[in-house]
Design a protein around this nucleic acid. Sequence first.
DNA 1: TTGAAAGCGCTAACAG
DNA 2: CTGTTAGCGCTTTCAA
Lengths: 326, 326
Amino acid sequence: MADVAKLAGVSKMTVSHVMNGHHHVRAETRAKVEAAMAAVDYRPNSTARALRRGRTGVIGLAVSNIHMPYTAELARGVSDVLQQYGYRVAIEETRGRSESETEAWLRSPLSYDGLLISTSSLHRVPPGTLPQGYPVVVLGESMDDLSVDHVGIANKAGLALATRHLLGLGRTRVAFVGGSLGEETDMQVSRTRGYAQALRHAGVAFDPALVLPTMSDAPGGHAAAAQVLAAGADGAVCVTDSVALGLMRGLADRGCRVPDQVPVVGFDDIELSQFASPTLTTVRPDKDELVATAVAMLVERMGGFDGPGRLRVVQCELIPRESTAL
Amino acid sequence: MADVAKLAGVSKMTVSHVMNGHHHVRAETRAKVEAAMAAVDYRPNSTARALRRGRTGVIGLAVSNIHMPYTAELARGVSDVLQQYGYRVAIEETRGRSESETEAWLRSPLSYDGLLISTSSLHRVPPGTLPQGYPVVVLGESMDDLSVDHVGIANKAGLALATRHLLGLGRTRVAFVGGSLGEETDMQVSRTRGYAQALRHAGVAFDPALVLPTMSDAPGGHAAAAQVLAAGADGAVCVTDSVALGLMRGLADRGCRVPDQVPVVGFDDIELSQFASPTLTTVRPDKDELVATAVAMLVERMGGFDGPGRLRVVQCELIPRESTAL
DNA sequence: TTGAAAGCGCTAACAG
DNA sequence: CTGTTAGCGCTTTCAA
C-alpha cells in the first residue's frame, strides 16, 4: 500500500479511501491511485484489514460430515441466506475430531464474525466453553449450555409420524434402522424415542430386536437388510434417507419387494429420494425455516443482542411416495 | 493479552511464550500465566496472529456447487489429506457468481495460505489475474493461464469409455444426456467430445439430435427422459451420475425398461450409484490420485516452489453394473 | 529465562 | 478533498 501511495504521489490514506470507494475523492486523484494499484498489482491484505476493522464479513459453518446430502443442502441454504445479509460463508468439516467439537472450533485459526454449528451428535459442552459475546447458533441436537441459541428439528415427532404411517398401513412389526438406545441425546437417540413413542401410543409392543443400529449412510442401510428380514419385520423406518435408500436396495437383493412385503420410510427428503425406484416416502423437515431462523438469530447476535439462549424447533411433514404405497 | 500479562505479573511476551509452548519458561511462571489466562477467559486473536506470522494454516477450497456428490467427496478427500500436512481446510461455494470466479476468490476476506479451485466450467482467466506467488492449484477444467498448476480428469477418454461400452453392446443410437456443443471448454463440452470421438472411432454417425443438454442434476436427467425416447435412442450416456439416476427414473416413469430397452451409463461413481435399482454403470475417475496430486502440488507451492504451471491428468475406469447388464 | 522495542498492513478519527 | 496520528493484537529480534 505504501508502494501504491508513493507511486501515485499521495498518502496511504488516500489509497485506502479509493479502495473503499469513499466518494469524496477527486476523480483525478482516484485515477492516479487506480493506475498505481494496477501497476504494482496491488492486493489488499485482508488479514490486516480484518484486524483493524474488527470483523471479517465471513461466518463459519461447522458440520460434522459434508458428505451427507442433508449437510450439503444445509450449507447451500445458509450460504444463500447469509449472502443477502452481506456475509460470506466458509464451511469446515469437523469429522467428530474431538470429544468436544465446539472446543476445536473455537480454536480455529480463521476469524469468523459468527459461527453456525451443526453436528448430529453434539456431546456435552462444558458450560463456559463458549466465549462471551461470540455469536454462535447451534443447529440440530441441543447442548447443555443454554446460553447458546439453538434451532432444532422435531426429530421425535418426525419419526413418530413415519412410524404411525406404517402402523396405519396395518404393519405391526416395524423395524427402526439406524436407531440407538443410548443415553446421550443425539439425533439417532431422539429419533429412536419418536419411534418408541409412536408404538406406545398405538398400543404396539416395543421389541428391542427391531431397533437396528447401523452407520447412518447407504452402505449401513444396505447391510442392515439381512437383519431386518431376520427380525421378521413387516415395515421399516430409517434414521435417514441415505440409510433407507441403501436398505431398499439390500431388501431387493434378497428378493424382498418394497413396498408390498416391507414398506420403507426415510428422513430428510434428500433430492435423490424422489428419483429412486421405488420413490422414497420420507419425513421432510422444514429446511427453509431452519435456515432462516438460525441465520436470523445469528445476525441478531452479531448485531449485539446479548440475551439468554433461545430455542426454536422446526416441524416435519410426511411425504408419502411409492415406497409405502400399498 | 495485556490483561493476562498484568494479572500474572509478567510481560506480554511471556504470555506469548507460554501460549506457543516455548519450553524455556520456568514451570512456576507458566503456571501463573495459565491461571491468569483461565481467569480472564483469554482467547487468542487469530487475526492478529496471522497478520504477524504471515500465515494462517488454512487453505481454501473453492467449489462451484457443494450440492454435487462429486464435490462433497472431493472436499472430504482434500480435508483428510491436508490434515496430514497440518493444514485445515475451509470450503467456500462460488455458485458461478461472477464471470471470473477466480477473481472473486482472490478478493476473499479470508486469508488462506493456499487455494484449491474446483469448478466445472472455469471460463477464461485473464493471464495475470492470479497474483505472483500465491499458491493455487486448479482441479477440473483447464485454464488459459498456464502459470498455474492444474490437475484434471480425463473427461474425454472417460466418456469415450462409456460410449464404447454401449456401442459394444450393439447399440447404435446412443444419446448423450447433459451434453453441450459449446466453444468454451468446460466439463460438459469435454465429455461431449469424448462421446463424439468414440462414435467416430466406431464408425457410427454423430447425430446432434442425440445430444441432449440438461441441468447437471437428477431433475435434469429426469426431465430428459422424454427427449431420449423421442429421439429414438437405444442407449444413453450421461454427463454425471446424478443425471443418470434421474434419467433412469424418468425412463421407468414412461414404461421404458433399463437396461433392456435403454442401457444407461453415468460418470463420477457417487456412492448412491451402487444402491440404485438398477445399480448404475459408471465411469470412475481416480479420485484418490486427483486429491493426492493436487495437494502435493499445493504443498510444494506453499513451500516456495515457483516453477511454471504443471499439468497432470488422472485416468478413469469403467465400472459395469446392472444398468448395462444385458 | 524474561522483556523492551518495533512493526505486520490496514483504517477510524480526526485535522487541515 | 487529502493527510497525520495512532493504534488493532500479536510475535520477531535481540538485549538484559
